[in-house]
């Protein structure tokens, strides 16, 4: 499943700069709002769903090399976080749906681990 398909089917808002999302493939997903758990559990190429929207998710996403961060329940990162994400090549996506529903939909689409 590529990122463009996920963005389209879940109607996600792209917060960072546009990229060729169709060429970015995802290898599964991980969900947690606890950054240590994400450091331990998220794998390269995963979609990480979280309620967290502050600056530190960018560093965690860059270190774990997740394909994208889906920020749920309309939590809004500030402009400094978005700028840092762009600088580090981290993709931030946003949705009004809660994490549980996003995960359910992703799993239904075949984004399984």
């Amino acid at each position: 499943m590529n990122l463009q398909q996920i963005i389209d089917q879940l109607n996600l808002t792209v917060l960072t700069e546009p990229r060729d999302f169709a060429s970015i493939t995802t290898s599964g997903g991980y969900s947690s709002d606890l950054l240590s758990c994400v450091m331990a559990g998220a794998k390269k190429g995963h979609v990480w769903t979280t309620l967290q929207a502050h600056l530190n998710i960018v560093a965690v996403a860059a270190l774990t090399e997740v394909a994208a961060v889906v920020i749920t329940e309309n939590a809004q990162p500030d402009s400094a976080s978005i700028a840092k994400a762009n600088q580090q090549g981290v993709i931030l996506l946003s949705t009004s749906l809660p994490t549980y529903e996003v995960n359910g939909k992703l799993w239904g689409m075949g984004v399984c681990n």
């Binding site: 950054l35 502050h54 530190n56």
Partner: peptide, 15 residues
Amino acid sequence: EMGFGAGMGLVNMKR
């Protein structure tokens, strides 16, 4: 609230 303090830091490091 920022997602730290899960009590997993040193556990992660040790692993």
